[in-house]
């Protein structure tokens, strides 16, 4: 018995060391991403301006060829035909090298952090998400994991690396300093297999919604940038350097739509799973507890966003604002409700 307790304490300690190590690795990754952006700024590509002002030919990828006839694609009416930016490295050799180093470090950081989460789970002998500390470390692990999965699938998401690692560092910083809770067992209300189902999907939804929100935010910047050029304006030097390397507004918009649309059914499932659990634990499946309320608000806000995309006059920027509001609701549900509002959702040691 005591031996087991000592083992658990050792594991908990190992977990902490791993989490701190992952922070160190992410910090290195952060600097590598910065280097990628800095070296990339020396590129003189300026594709967006070229495409929008009609000079020169934009260097876009060729038509889809799968052997046999050649397919020619055309963007839908009403969207700007702007090629994606070259990415943070700006197509430069050194930028690209740093970018690759950054990605490799991100992979290492992810593996170390994931081991930290697993060690934590083993030390407490349960799912590692019963308090805000555990929730936060799992959340950032999943966010980085989702990013790496998208990269591995060959999606064009490298532009997101710097923003992602920055927030992961923030998240882990807050987790280890103010949210830290010693590893321990669960209060009886959390003893349920629904903990695995409901909370794991909630974390996945949040992490992936977060990637969508980054895409949306960058879409807004990039869209203003393209608008300005299309109107014949000259954007600032910084905007030219940074925004020009991002994917086109249309691509960013589509990226965040796909992400949000893909996660929305899972979020719906999360809420329903929560309701079923509440039915078992508290004797009612819906009681407008603050956490339930904010999950509902988040859900309706995302539904609003999806509707906006299908409503003329609401596409584009307005829909993007709705998406950001929706993610803001998710964040508030996670931090705000836990910290400012007391309800039935007890997280030990906020």
């Amino acid at each position: 018995m005591n031996l087991a307790a000592a083992t658990n304490e050792n594991l908990a300690h190992t977990s902490n060391v791993l989490i701190y190590s992952s922070m160190a690795v992410y910090t290195l990754a952060f600097f590598a991403y910065i280097a990628e952006w800095v070296f990339g700024s020396r590129s003189k590509v300026g594709r967006t301006a070229a495409a929008l002002s009609g000079e020169g030919t934009a260097a876009a990828a060729g038509p889809v060829v799968l052997g046999g006839p050649t397919i020619v694609t055309r963007s839908a009416a009403g969207t700007r035909d702007v090629p994606d930016g070259p990415g943070a490295s700006g197509g430069t050799y050194r930028g690209d090298m740093w970018g690759r180093i950054a990605i490799s470090l991100t992979v290492v950081g992810f593996l170390v952090e994931a081991c930290g989460v697993i060690a934590r789970a083993m030390s407490v002998e349960r799912a590692p998400w019963a308090n805000m500390y555990e929730f936060s470390i799992t959340f950032s692990t999943v966010a980085v994991g989702a990013f790496l999965v998208l990269l591995a699938l060959g999606k064009n998401v490298r532009w997101m690396g710097l923003a992602l690692v920055t927030t992961v560092l923030l998240d882990l910083g807050v987790a280890t300093t103010t949210l830290y809770t010693d590893s321990d067992q669960l209060v009886p209300a959390l003893h349920s297999y629904w903990l695995w189902i409901h909370v794991s999907t909630a974390i996945i939804c949040g992490a992936v919604f977060y990637l969508g929100a980054v895409g949306t935010l960058l879409y807004l910047f990039r869209d203003s940038y393209e608008n300005k050029i299309a109107q014949g304006g000259t954007p600032g030097k910084f905007a030219r350097s940074v925004l020009d390397r991002l994917p086109s507004a249309a691509s960013l918009d589509k990226f965040s739509y796909r992400i949000n649309a893909a996660v929305f059914p899972l979020w719906t499932f999360t809420i329903i799973a929560g309701a079923i659990w509440a039915g078992d634990a508290w004797g009612r499946y819906w009681g407008w507890d603050p956490k339930e309320t904010w999950s509902f608000i988040t859900w309706v806000a995302y539904a609003c966003y999806l509707h906006a995309r299908a409503t003329a006059g609401w596409k584009g920027r307005k829909a993007a604002y709705l998406a950001l509001i929706a993610f803001g609701c998710w964040l508030f549900n996670y931090y705000g409700v836990n910290i400012f509002i007391t309800g039935k959702h007890s997280y030990a040691g906020v």
């Binding site: 030919t57 876009a60 060729g62 889809v64 055309r74 963007s75 994606d84 999606k155 064009n156 691509s251």
Partner: peptide, 19 residues
């Protein structure tokens, strides 16, 4: 004949560029 003609932009859209 396989050239879709002058109206169709030779460059693919961003859509085509996506993997």
């Amino acid at each position: 004949a396989t050239d879709p003609g002058p109206d169709v932009p030779a460059a693919a859209s961003a859509e085509g560029a996506e993997k």
